[in-house]
Each structure stands twice: as C-alpha cells, then as structure tokens.
Simulated assay, not measured.
Amino acid sequence: MFRRLFAISLLLISAVGCTFGVVRITKDNFKNSHTVNLKLELKSEESILGTLIDTPFTKYRVEMDFTREIGEGKLVPTIGRVTVFATTQNTGLERSGFLKIGEKMSQLAFGNSSVQSVTTTVTRSNAQGGNTSAPSYGYGAGTGTGVTTSSSTHLRLNTTFLLKKEEEDEILKSNSFTIRFYSGAEPITVVIEESDLDKFKEYLTARPE
C-alpha cells in the first residue's frame, strides 16, 4: 500500500513539474477568445541576499507566468506574472526595472506587487534505541521516542508587467532577453536564452487551430 501511494505521489509531482516549459492554448467561451500560456522556472544571475559563497545552488528561484489573449480581430500582448523566492532579508520588488533585448535596453514598469511570507514546519520522530529513561516529549513515559520540530520562513516577491507588441517582435529576432528586478537596492537579473528562449518564441507564435 505504501509503495502504491509513493508511486502516485511521484506521478503527481511529475505532473506538476511538467507545467513548466509547456505552451498551452485554452479557449474561453465567455470572451470568445483563446488564451496562450507559458510558465518558466528560472534562476537569477545573482546569489540570494546574505550568501557568502556564489554557487549555482545559491541563486534566486524565479517563476514566470506569461499569458497573451487572441480574440476575433484583436491580439492582447503578453502579461507577465512573476514570483521570486527570496529570504526574509529581502524587501518587496520595486516598481521599475529594466528589459534588455539583445543589446537594446529600456525601462520596464511593474505593478500589483506584493510580498508573501511562507513558513514551513517539519516534525521528525527520533527513536531513542530502547532507552526507557529518555524523556517522552508528550509521547508517553518510557516510550523512548522524541519529536523534533523545526521551521523555516521564506518570502515570495510577486509582481506583474506588460510586454508591448514591438518588444515581442524584437524578442522573436533576438538570441536572448533579460529582465532586471530590484528588491530594494538588490538586483535580481533573469536571462531567458537557449531552450527557454525557444519555448518563449513558440509561445509568441502559437495560434489556435
């Protein structure tokens, strides 16, 4: 039974992971339009605030959710929704940053910014190897079992931005594009290139059948 539940859990985790890097087209009967969506999971160029050693494992994790709408006689450019996974030392994302397409740089405005504090608690059971004199920690005297609880808190820095149609056209002709955010004075830079850029170009050119 345990193995079966474990296998199901792995499948669910895999299914969730598959939502990144997949271009989806959804019909909206109420709006009489189609929505094109792409989610990317990226790493920042900079290490997390307070990190002493810069490694590939100390970068900010950044989730980007891109959506554009295709309707009869209209085409709504991209809305980007961003979540940066940060530490409690970070502050919220500033209202302005930069967009760099190839070598061309321009200012990028952000809106609907918010900060979420998320606390994760882990409880572990520690066997005492039959030592009946060990404290019970609420599990009954003489059981030889203890419980250790630890918690950690991180911040989710959320914001949104718009891409203009001309910026989308420039991205289609580029080899990469970069978005620079600021958490207070701290820069958080995300480069979209290679396979992620290929997916983004697929997203920009996707059309309903």
Rank of each mutant, 00 (worst) to 15 (best):
4 R>T: 11
4 R>V: 10
7 A>P: 01
8 I>K: 11
9 S>D: 01
10 L>K: 15
15 A>N: 09
15 A>H: 06
16 V>N: 07
17 G>E: 07
18 C>H: 04
18 C>M: 08
19 T>V: 14
20 F>E: 06
22 V>Q: 06
22 V>M: 05
23 V>F: 03
28 D>L: 05
29 N>G: 05
29 N>H: 09
30 F>Y: 13
32 N>E: 10
33 S>C: 14
33 S>I: 03
33 S>R: 04
35 T>Q: 11
36 V>T: 09
37 N>T: 12
39 K>W: 01
39 K>N: 10
39 K>L: 07
40 L>M: 06
41 E>D: 07
42 L>G: 09
43 K>G: 04
43 K>C: 00
44 S>L: 04
45 E>H: 10
45 E>C: 03
47 S>G: 13
49 L>T: 12
51 T>S: 10
52 L>I: 13
53 I>V: 15
55 T>V: 10
56 P>R: 06
56 P>A: 07
57 F>E: 07
58 T>R: 02
59 K>W: 05
61 R>V: 11
63 E>R: 08
63 E>K: 09
64 M>P: 01
66 F>G: 03
67 T>C: 03
70 I>S: 08
71 G>K: 10
71 G>Q: 08
72 E>D: 12
73 G>F: 09
74 K>E: 14
76 V>M: 07
78 T>A: 07
79 I>N: 08
83 T>G: 03
91 T>V: 15
91 T>S: 14
95 R>D: 11
95 R>F: 08
96 S>L: 07
98 F>C: 01
99 L>H: 08
105 M>K: 15
106 S>A: 11
107 Q>K: 13
108 L>Y: 07
109 A>L: 11
112 N>V: 01
113 S>Q: 15
113 S>M: 08
116 Q>F: 06
118 V>F: 06
118 V>R: 13
120 T>S: 12
124 R>Q: 09
125 S>P: 00
127 A>R: 05
127 A>D: 10
129 G>Q: 09
131 N>D: 14
132 T>R: 08
135 P>T: 07
136 S>F: 04
141 A>I: 06
142 G>S: 08
145 T>F: 11
146 G>C: 03
147 V>S: 12
147 V>Q: 08
147 V>W: 02
149 T>Q: 13
150 S>I: 12
151 S>V: 06
155 L>N: 09
156 R>P: 00
162 L>V: 14
162 L>W: 11
163 L>A: 04
163 L>W: 02
166 E>D: 15
172 L>R: 01
172 L>E: 02
174 S>Q: 03
174 S>E: 01
175 N>E: 05
175 N>F: 00
175 N>I: 00
176 S>I: 02
184 G>Q: 11
184 G>F: 09
186 E>I: 15
186 E>W: 12
187 P>K: 05
189 T>P: 04
190 V>M: 03
190 V>I: 11
194 E>G: 00
194 E>L: 03
195 S>Q: 10
197 L>D: 00
198 D>R: 14
198 D>Y: 05
199 K>G: 00
203 Y>V: 00
203 Y>T: 00
205 T>L: 10
209 E>Q: 13
